[in-house]
Protein backbone atom coordinates (compact mmCIF):
# COMPACT_ATOMS: atom_id res chain seq x y z
CA UNK A 1 0.00 0.00 0.00
CA UNK A 2 1.08 3.52 -0.71
CA UNK A 3 1.81 5.97 2.08
CA UNK A 4 0.20 9.17 0.84
CA UNK A 5 1.87 12.48 1.63
CA UNK A 6 1.98 16.08 0.53
CA UNK A 7 5.27 17.73 -0.36
CA UNK A 8 5.65 21.46 -0.86
CA UNK A 9 8.72 22.70 -2.71
CA UNK A 10 8.83 26.31 -1.56
CA UNK A 11 11.47 27.16 -4.16
CA UNK A 12 8.72 26.76 -6.74
CA UNK A 13 5.58 28.08 -5.05
CA UNK A 14 4.52 31.43 -6.59
CA UNK A 15 1.55 32.07 -4.29
CA UNK A 16 -0.94 31.84 -7.14
CA UNK A 17 -3.52 30.17 -4.86
CA UNK A 18 -4.62 27.77 -7.60
CA UNK A 19 -4.45 24.92 -5.09
CA UNK A 20 -6.73 26.83 -2.71
CA UNK A 21 -9.22 27.53 -5.48
CA UNK A 22 -9.10 23.99 -6.79
CA UNK A 23 -9.79 22.61 -3.30
CA UNK A 24 -12.65 25.03 -2.66
CA UNK A 25 -14.26 24.21 -5.98
CA UNK A 26 -13.75 20.47 -6.08
CA UNK A 27 -15.05 19.93 -2.56
CA UNK A 28 -17.56 22.80 -2.50
CA UNK A 29 -16.01 23.98 0.74
CA UNK A 30 -18.25 26.60 2.37
CA UNK A 31 -17.28 30.23 2.88
CA UNK A 32 -15.10 30.72 5.91
CA UNK A 33 -13.53 27.27 5.84
CA UNK A 34 -10.10 26.86 4.29
CA UNK A 35 -8.89 23.35 3.93
CA UNK A 36 -5.81 24.64 2.14
CA UNK A 37 -4.10 28.01 2.38
CA UNK A 38 -0.93 29.69 1.19
CA UNK A 39 1.20 31.40 3.84
CA UNK A 40 3.92 33.83 2.77
CA UNK A 41 6.94 34.11 5.04
CA UNK A 42 9.07 37.24 5.06
CA UNK A 43 6.64 38.95 2.75
CA UNK A 44 8.32 41.61 0.60
CA UNK A 45 11.76 40.96 2.07
CA UNK A 46 14.74 39.14 0.61
CA UNK A 47 14.21 35.42 0.79
CA UNK A 48 10.43 35.65 0.70
CA UNK A 49 8.82 32.25 0.53
CA UNK A 50 5.32 30.95 0.06
CA UNK A 51 4.13 27.65 1.40
CA UNK A 52 0.84 25.99 0.54
CA UNK A 53 -0.37 24.13 3.57
CA UNK A 54 -3.28 21.85 4.41
CA UNK A 55 -3.63 18.79 6.58
CA UNK A 56 -0.40 16.84 6.18
CA UNK A 57 -1.97 13.48 7.12
CA UNK A 58 0.60 13.05 9.86
CA UNK A 59 2.20 9.87 11.08
CA UNK A 60 0.77 9.19 14.56
CA UNK A 61 -1.58 12.12 14.00
CA UNK A 62 -1.89 14.54 16.96
CA UNK A 63 -5.51 15.40 16.09
CA UNK A 64 -6.53 11.75 16.33
CA UNK A 65 -4.58 11.34 19.56
CA UNK A 66 -6.41 14.11 21.42
CA UNK A 67 -9.95 13.77 20.03
CA UNK A 68 -12.15 13.08 23.08
CA UNK A 69 -14.64 11.07 21.03
CA UNK A 70 -11.99 9.21 18.98
CA UNK A 71 -13.67 10.05 15.68
CA UNK A 72 -10.54 9.85 13.50
CA UNK A 73 -9.42 6.90 11.45
CA UNK A 74 -6.53 6.28 9.11
CA UNK A 75 -7.09 4.68 5.71
CA UNK A 76 -4.91 1.94 4.28
CA UNK A 77 -3.08 4.70 2.36
CA UNK A 78 -2.33 6.46 5.67
CA UNK A 79 -4.80 9.28 4.95
CA UNK A 80 -6.17 10.77 8.18
CA UNK A 81 -9.97 11.10 8.03
CA UNK A 82 -12.70 11.73 10.57
CA UNK A 83 -16.36 11.00 11.08
CA UNK A 84 -18.42 14.20 11.24
CA UNK A 85 -21.39 12.36 12.68
CA UNK A 86 -19.30 11.66 15.78
CA UNK A 87 -17.42 14.98 16.10
CA UNK A 88 -18.67 17.18 18.95
CA UNK A 89 -16.84 20.32 17.82
CA UNK A 90 -14.71 20.66 20.93
CA UNK A 91 -11.83 22.27 19.04
CA UNK A 92 -9.15 20.08 20.61
CA UNK A 93 -7.81 18.89 17.26
CA UNK A 94 -7.06 22.51 16.35
CA UNK A 95 -5.08 22.96 19.57
CA UNK A 96 -2.98 19.88 18.86
CA UNK A 97 -2.51 20.16 15.10
CA UNK A 98 0.91 21.62 14.25
CA UNK A 99 -0.40 22.99 10.93
CA UNK A 100 -3.68 24.62 11.96
CA UNK A 101 -5.51 22.30 9.58
CA UNK A 102 -8.83 21.65 11.37
CA UNK A 103 -11.52 24.20 10.49
CA UNK A 104 -14.92 24.93 12.00
CA UNK A 105 -18.04 26.50 10.51
CA UNK A 106 -18.22 29.01 13.37
CA UNK A 107 -15.84 30.62 15.85
CA UNK A 108 -17.62 28.70 18.55
CA UNK A 109 -18.63 30.79 21.56
CA UNK A 110 -20.42 28.48 24.04
CA UNK A 111 -19.10 25.44 22.22
CA UNK A 112 -21.01 26.15 19.02
CA UNK A 113 -18.19 25.52 16.56
CA UNK A 114 -20.09 22.90 14.61
CA UNK A 115 -18.52 19.84 13.02
CA UNK A 116 -14.82 20.02 12.30
CA UNK A 117 -13.83 20.10 8.62
CA UNK A 118 -10.41 19.54 7.16
CA UNK A 119 -8.57 18.39 4.08
CA UNK A 120 -9.54 14.81 3.27
CA UNK A 121 -6.78 14.31 0.72
CA UNK A 122 -9.75 14.24 -1.66
CA UNK A 123 -10.66 10.91 -0.10
CA UNK A 124 -14.16 11.69 1.18
CA UNK A 125 -15.23 10.23 4.49
CA UNK A 126 -16.80 7.20 6.14
CA UNK A 127 -19.97 7.31 3.99
CA UNK A 128 -20.25 5.09 0.91
CA UNK A 129 -17.70 6.12 -1.73
CA UNK A 130 -18.91 8.96 -3.95
CA UNK A 131 -22.41 8.91 -2.49
CA UNK A 132 -24.32 12.16 -2.25
CA UNK A 133 -24.11 12.04 1.53
CA UNK A 134 -20.34 11.72 1.35
CA UNK A 135 -20.06 14.65 -1.02
CA UNK A 136 -22.22 16.94 1.12
CA UNK A 137 -20.35 16.12 4.31
CA UNK A 138 -16.79 15.71 3.08
CA UNK A 139 -16.54 16.71 -0.57
CA UNK A 140 -15.05 14.75 -3.43
CA UNK A 141 -13.62 11.26 -3.21
CA UNK A 142 -11.05 11.30 -5.99
CA UNK A 143 -8.97 8.62 -4.34
CA UNK A 144 -11.83 6.13 -4.81
CA UNK A 145 -11.76 7.09 -8.51
CA UNK A 146 -8.04 6.39 -8.70
CA UNK A 147 -7.08 10.07 -8.85
CA UNK A 148 -4.86 12.24 -6.66
CA UNK A 149 -5.89 15.38 -4.73
CA UNK A 150 -6.91 18.18 -7.08
CA UNK A 151 -4.79 20.87 -5.39
CA UNK A 152 -1.57 19.13 -6.38
CA UNK A 153 -2.92 18.18 -9.79
CA UNK A 154 -3.74 21.84 -10.48
CA UNK A 155 -0.49 23.30 -9.18
CA UNK A 156 0.90 25.34 -12.06
CA UNK A 157 4.54 25.03 -11.03
CA UNK A 158 4.24 21.58 -9.47
CA UNK A 159 5.51 23.03 -6.24
CA UNK A 160 2.82 21.01 -4.48
CA UNK A 161 3.19 17.27 -4.92
CA UNK A 162 0.79 14.62 -3.73
CA UNK A 163 1.16 10.89 -3.89
CA UNK A 164 3.09 8.04 -2.38
CA UNK A 165 5.74 9.44 -0.03
CA UNK A 166 8.57 7.50 -1.64
CA UNK A 167 7.67 8.64 -5.14
CA UNK A 168 7.23 12.34 -4.41
CA UNK A 169 10.38 12.38 -2.25
CA UNK A 170 12.29 10.94 -5.19
CA UNK A 171 10.91 13.59 -7.56
CA UNK A 172 11.92 16.30 -5.13
CA UNK A 173 15.36 14.78 -4.60
CA UNK A 174 16.05 14.74 -8.34
CA UNK A 175 14.90 18.34 -8.64
CA UNK A 176 17.17 19.53 -5.87
CA UNK A 177 20.11 17.64 -7.31
CA UNK A 178 19.55 19.13 -10.75
CA UNK A 179 19.09 22.73 -9.67
CA UNK A 180 21.56 22.61 -6.79
CA UNK A 181 19.42 23.93 -3.96
CA UNK A 182 16.34 23.15 -1.98
CA UNK A 183 14.77 24.45 1.18
CA UNK A 184 13.66 21.01 2.25
CA UNK A 185 10.25 19.40 2.33
CA UNK A 186 8.10 21.82 4.31
CA UNK A 187 6.65 20.37 7.47
CA UNK A 188 7.92 16.87 6.90
CA UNK A 189 9.97 16.79 10.04
CA UNK A 190 6.93 17.79 12.06
CA UNK A 191 4.36 15.65 10.24
CA UNK A 192 6.28 12.51 9.37
CA UNK A 193 9.30 12.75 11.68
CA UNK A 194 11.59 12.46 8.73
CA UNK A 195 13.00 14.68 6.06
CA UNK A 196 13.99 14.11 2.47
CA UNK A 197 17.66 13.23 2.45
CA UNK A 198 19.26 14.59 -0.71
Amino acid sequence: MARMKFLLDSDRCIECNACVTACKNENEVPWGINRRRVVTLNDGKPGERSVSMACMHCTDAPCAAVCPVSCFYTTADAIVLHDKDLCIGCGYCFYACPFGAPQYPRIGNFGSRGKMDKCTYCAGGPQADNSEAEFIQYGANRIAEGKLPLCAEMCSTKALLAGDGEVIAQIYRERVQRRGYGAGAWGWRTAYRETVAI
Binding site: L41, N42, K45, G47, E48, G184
Partner: peptide, 8 residues
Protein backbone atom coordinates in the same frame (compact mmCIF):
# COMPACT_ATOMS: atom_id res chain seq x y z
CA UNK B 1 19.53 29.33 2.26
CA UNK B 2 16.91 32.04 2.27
CA UNK B 3 16.03 34.22 5.21
CA UNK B 4 12.67 32.48 5.45
CA UNK B 5 14.29 29.08 5.89
CA UNK B 6 16.45 30.47 8.63
CA UNK B 7 13.38 31.97 10.21
CA UNK B 8 11.67 28.60 10.18
Amino acid sequence: PSVADEMA
